[in-house]
Computed example of a mutant assay.
Amino acid sequence: MALSDSSVPEPDVDDLKAADAQDLHRAVREEGEEELDRPVSSLFFSALAAGMAIASSLIAEGALHAALPDTPWRSIIVSLGYPIGFLVVILGRMQLFTESTITAMLPLVTRPSGWALRRTMRLWIVVLGANLLGTAIAGLAIATGLLGGAELRTAMIEVSLAITELSAWATFVNAVPAGFMIAILAWSLPNAREQAFLVIGAITYVVAIGGFSHSVVGSVEAWLLLFSDRTEIVQTIGLILPAILGNLLGGAGLFALLAHAQVRGEMNGRDES
């Protein structure tokens, strides 16, 4: 009978376990604390790049839309392009407003203070403003023909027109689950780094096929319609603002508070310090 090789160390059981809720809370919270400490200039340029890069979702959807026949199942295939922008932005470690709703919120609810509140508001204002500026630049580039050809531009406009079918209230309601799911994405990634591509792709694909409203991707569509003379500025604001508020409620107002509540009673002094 062969003897086992005692020189080979046995794996640590803890290394084989998935992180529990407290570990995830700590990982996301520490990431949020790092974001709160970043200089405004770093946040701004990272978020600006994210706003421009997220347009790759609309580009991919437009390309698929142009290549497929007008059938009942076309939207299911077109939605496969939606995760592309999120993969670029999240794996590229760029600042995305909807992802920061939970990362910035956890430090605030864990140790409430005036400093944390001011830093959280600073982060959201800078990141959201830069995201919207980036999406406006991308939308203008598409509308003026600087990005993509005429056929692709027409397809992207057709894809974007779907957001005009919703009222402001419907957009707000549709944005709540989108904010909730993107917060789930940020919460899940520390436990799935090796599967990040699949996790990001799966969750954002569900956002797409569910027709949920994402404020940053939706703003690319809204700006494109504005710069293509399909909408007016007031209507554009009416398309973007309700999505922002709904995403904020779903991400920071619901998921972040629930994520904190599930571990609050178990957090020890070491976690609080």
Rank of each mutant, 00 (worst) to 15 (best):
L58V: 15
G114C: 05
P112R: 02
T103V: 08
A66P: 02
L91M: 14
Q95T: 13
S100D: 15
I59Y: 14
L48A: 03
V109M: 00
A55I: 02
A47M: 09
L108I: 03
R74W: 04
L91D: 00
A55G: 15
G114L: 12
A47N: 11
E61W: 13
S113D: 04
E99L: 07
G92Y: 07
E35F: 10
F44H: 07
H65M: 14
I102T: 09
S41G: 06
G114E: 05
P107C: 03
V78D: 07
L48F: 12
F44R: 02
G85N: 03
G92K: 01
L108H: 05
L96A: 13
F45K: 07
P39Y: 09
A60D: 10
F86G: 11
L106R: 01
L80Y: 02
E35H: 12
A67E: 06
P112V: 03
L58K: 09
L43D: 10
A47V: 09
S75T: 13
E61R: 14
A63L: 13
L106D: 03
A49Q: 05
L48I: 01
G114P: 03
I102A: 04
P39G: 09
A49T: 09
I54V: 12
I59Q: 13
D37V: 08
V88Q: 05
F86K: 05
G62R: 08
T98K: 06
T98E: 03
I59E: 10
I77K: 00
T101I: 11
F45T: 10
F86N: 08
E61V: 12
V89R: 04
M105N: 04
A66Q: 08
I102G: 06
S100T: 15
I102W: 04
L96D: 08
T103L: 05
A49V: 05
V88M: 14
G62E: 09
T71F: 09
A49H: 00
L64Y: 08
L87K: 05
I76C: 01
G114R: 13
R38C: 03
T103E: 05
R111A: 02
F44D: 04
S75M: 12
G62V: 10
L43W: 08
I76Y: 15
E34P: 03
S100A: 07
S56L: 15
G85V: 01
E61T: 14
F45S: 04
S57F: 06
G62P: 13
I76A: 15
E99Q: 13
V40N: 14
I84R: 01
L80D: 06
G92T: 02
L68W: 02
I77H: 02
P112G: 09
I59T: 15
P69L: 01
L43R: 08
